[in-house]
Structures are given as C-alpha cells and as structure tokens.
Design a binder for these strands. Structure first.
Lengths: 220, 220
DNA sequence: GGCGGTCCTAACGCGTTCTTAACGCCTCGG
DNA sequence: CCGAGGCGTTAAGAACGCGTTAGGACCGCC
C-alpha cells in the first residue's frame, strides 16, 4: 500500500489485515518501488496524492519489471487523470471517497485475474523437487533448506524454466532495481545453490550459466 | 457488447469501431452467451440493465468456460451491486453516466492484462530453430550455444526476418552508436554464426549477404 | 553478551569471448 | 586486363566474465 496520509492508510491496513492480507505500507513513491522490489507483493494499492514522485511514474516504475496488479486511489475524478493512470499500466482506478467493500471487491477481482488458473506448482527433476506453492524443496526424500535469497533466486529461475533469465532481471527481481550491476552476488549465490542442489556442483546440469547473458533452469 | 438500449449501444459501437475494434452487439443475456461462445471475443462490455436474465448470471455464464475480460456497465451505484458483479467474475464495474475516454482506457487496461506478455516466438527452418523468448537455438535436436554478441546479432536478424537489415543498424543495435563504421565486426561474427548454423557455411542459405548494404535472414 | 546463520565484499586463477590486424578471394568498373 | 573495394577467413593478444574461497558485517535468538 502506498499512501502518505497516515489516517487512510491506517484504516485500510487494519481492514486488510483483518481479512488475512499481509500489508506493507510505503509513504512515498520511491519507498514503494524499493519495497515492491524486495517483497514482491501480490497487489499494489497506490494513492495518487503523493508528495514528490508523480503517481503515474510509480506505476511506470513498477511496470518496468513487474506485472503486479495496481489499483490506483485518487480524489481526482477527471477523465484525464483516469486515462493517464490506466494507460500508464494501472489496473483499476477508484475515486475517493469510496466504500471499503467496493475496494475489497476490486482487489479480489484484480488478484483473481492475476493468478493464472493453471500453473504447475511442483517441478521435479531426477535429483530434486521444487514446490513453488509451498516454497519447499525435496532432495532424496529429505526436505532441503534454502536461505531466503537462495530460494528467491531458485524461484525466479524455476518459474521461467527453460528460458534464459538475464542477469539484470535476476538481480532486479531478487535484490531490487538498484543492484542491477552487482553480478558478483549472482556468482556467489549460484555457487551455493549448485552446492545444495546439483548432483555434481562443478558440472551443473540444471542451473546452467549462459556466459555474458544470464542463467537458465532446465528440468529433465 | 451486451445492451438492450439501442441508443447507448449504438453510440458505443460507433466509437469502438472508429478505433478499430470489431464489435458484436447482443440485446439480451441469452444472446450474449450464444454469441460469445461462437466468436470468442477479446473482451465483453456488459450492461446490467437487461430485461430477463440477470446481469451477474451472464457473468457467471461466461466465466463457466471463458476468462475473457468483462467490463460491467450499470446505472446502479450501490456497493452491493458492484461487489456482487465483481465477485461473480467481472473485471471492472463502471457506473453510468461515464466518459467514453474512461471506458476506452478501462477497456485497454482489461485487454492488456488478458494478453500474456510471453508470446510464442519460435522461428524454425529445416536446419535449426530459434526461440526468441527463451533465447535458445536448437540444431538437429541439440541445444546450440551462441556467445552474447552472436546471439544479439542473430536476434536482430531473425526479428526482421525477410527484411534487409543495414550494416549501420546492426552495428548500432549490437555494439552501440559509436561502432557504426566497424563493418569488420560484422564480417567476423557473421562468419562465426554461419559456421554454427548454416548447413554449408561457405554457401549461406539463411544468413544472406547483400553486398554494400547489409544482411538478411531468410526462413524457408 | 555470545552464538549461529545469512549476506556482502574482495581477490584470485582460469577459460571464454571480443577485438584487432592481416591476407586472399571475388566482383565490378575503368 | 588491371586495380579498388568489399567480403570471408584466420589467428593471436587483450579484456572480460565466471567460479571459488574466505573473512567480516549484520541480525535475531538464546
């Protein structure tokens, strides 16, 4: 949730939490982009009346790397504003004042839409098994623990199985937009991941390096 | 479009067609379900003020087999109605009267969302297969590795398949604006690419040189 | 306050990739 | 018939990227 007015965000946050949502609140656009890059929210509720950064720029900033549903809140009811926000990439535009039930319904609609019905949650290879939904990995029948960063990296690669994921994208998704140059991190963590998952870490079979480009997860 | 009032539907339909949309108009819910099943629309605009069948039932009827984006129009502004429609599976709810520009923006947002970003991007020839999305090349059933620069060059040519791509453009896209004169690079890398992909590298069949101008990729 | 776990950082050696230059061939125009 | 320019080919050195390792910073927990 992105809002600088403590009152509204407080009320909304309480309401959302009561319904079982986890809520992070950002007080500015910059903060919002920062947090979003770290926690990967399932949806974003964005108040346009922010000081500093323009609301539509926040939308564009998010859309640069994420397709997370964005619901825009605003006191401004003009068509111009609505069209601008929606065309910038927002999913919905709600004018204040609004009813809580309506917002919640629109949130449900947005989240529902964003969740593709058919997503294979379990990916198995001959040597291990990744459960994306449960965030668990099994190897040789045993549960295997990954650190949060390791898991995040594995998750991105497995979600894009078969596809080459660029270094930029990995860094951006796992560490945030400011870390796009830190290819060092990738090397360190890929080594750890391979040590835990690959049958022969020195000669990777599943987590393949494409020199100069990125990494690729290949199931059997 | 589902609407029984000829006036509104007429105005909307004209507007949509003027913007290049193809429009089918259904005057009742039953008709709407019927037409939708036949033509598989890219989006549905549904007026709730229909005689006969209830609007939310139309939504449910569509959702039974389709995930087409549904935008609901209604004169009723109560939260109850909005929540009901959205929870039935509608994607958006617009209260009449509304601005045409807003509706069009919401329509664009809905359609954009429904179109998965990842389109199948595989270009195949008799001798190899280029997957632009996964950044992968298969030749004789085997995965083939290209270096970053090689791949970049192939990518530009394949994206412009059939078309002549000038040396300037290739150099600029792959090496940057400062390298527009370095036609040497092109010769070196085209040779490498041909060695990896062409059935007879000395007599190129897919990556054709247009002397003095540039190169061209020709699929079968 | 100590401890375990996690992440960041820097440095090294190695293999790959890019750059650069040179040479011969072909085509085309004079 | 000759010369020039463009192209393909090759090879070698330079530059870069990768995997690996280890030490130190940071954080939450006991």
């Amino acid at each position: 949730m992105v809002d600088d007015e403590a009152q509204i965000s407080r009320a909304l946050a309480v309401n959302l939490k009561a319904r079982g949502y986890e809520v992070d609140v950002a007080g500015s656009g910059e903060k919002a982009l920062d947090i979003a890059a770290r926690v990967h929210p399932d949806a974003v509720i964005l108040d346009l009346g922010l000081p500093g950064m323009d609301g539509t720029d926040v939308v564009r900033g998010l859309r640069g790397w994420s397709s997370v549903p964005i619901i825009v809140l605003s006191v401004r009811d003009s068509e111009r504003d609505k069209v601008a926000a929606l065309d910038a990439g927002a999913d919905d535009y709600v004018t204040k004042p609004f009813g809580m039930d309506e917002l919640l319904a629109r949130l449900r609609a947005a989240v529902r839409r964003a969740t593709p019905a058919s997503e294979e949650a379990i990916v198995a290879t001959d040597h291990f098994e990744v459960d994306l939904a449960a965030k668990k990995i099994q190897k040789a029948g045993e549960d295997l623990r990954l650190t949060p960063t390791e898991w995040h990296l594995v998750e991105v690669l497995v979600r894009n199985r078969g596809k080459l994921v660029s270094q930029r994208q990995l860094l951006q998704e796992v560490w945030g937009p400011k870390y796009e140059e830190e290819t060092n991190y990738l090397r360190v963590f890929m080594a750890q991941i391979r040590r835990k998952l690959e049958p022969d870490p020195a000669r990777p079979r599943y987590f393949i390096t494409e020199p100069g480009m990125g990494y690729r997860f290949i199931p059997d």
